[in-house]
């Protein structure tokens, strides 16, 4: 069963992966990080990505209210150079974490990464 580091290293094997982190969106803490950070610093990236994740998770426009489902599944931000994929991790205990994967736009495959990251998020906490 993979731990946090194994999960992040697995994410880094996706084509075009530049960096990956597990982040708590309430505090902005990176609980684990590998590879490059978008701004050169994983702590800053974690705090900024957490702010985006929190806005999506806490606002009715984006969050589902169906019982038993996490409020948001994932967030995608694209720019001219790269993709950011934020996958919320649905834990059976109370937590507020997401996986943040940073992909180069040229080599990255967003659709594949989205499917794989969802599987990794599930395996991380479900085994």
């Amino acid at each position: 069963m993979p731990g946090i580091d194994e999960c992040l290293l697995e994410a880094m094997r996706l084509p075009g992966a530049r960096g990956a982190a597990l982040v708590d969106w309430t505090s902005g803490l990176a609980l684990g990080a590998v590879g490059e950070a978008p701004g050169g610093d994983h702590e800053t990236s974690a705090a900024e990505a957490a702010e985006l994740a929190r806005l999506a998770a806490e606002h009715g426009t984006f969050a589902t209210v169906r019982a038993g489902l996490p409020p948001v599944e994932d967030l995608i931000v694209s720019n001219g150079d790269s993709y950011h994929l934020l996958r919320f991790v649905d834990t059976s205990f109370d937590s507020s974490v997401f996986l943040h994967l940073w992909l180069g736009r040229e080599e990255g495959n967003l659709a594949l990464a989205r499917i794989r990251l969802g599987e990794m998020a599930a395996r991380l906490v479900l085994g």
């Binding site: 069963m1 993979p2 731990g3 946090i4 999960c7 597990l22 708590d24 505090s27 803490l29 609980l31 991790v89 834990t91 059976s92 205990f93 937590s95 974490v97 395996r123 991380l124 906490v125 479900l126 085994g127």
Partner: peptide, 18 residues
């Protein structure tokens, strides 16, 4: 004991520690 997935336990352990 393997009753919990490693990732879940690591995550909860770090949450509780911080």
């Amino acid at each position: 004991s393997g009753v919990l997935p490693t990732g879940a336990l690591e995550l909860c352990h770090l949450d509780a520690l911080y």
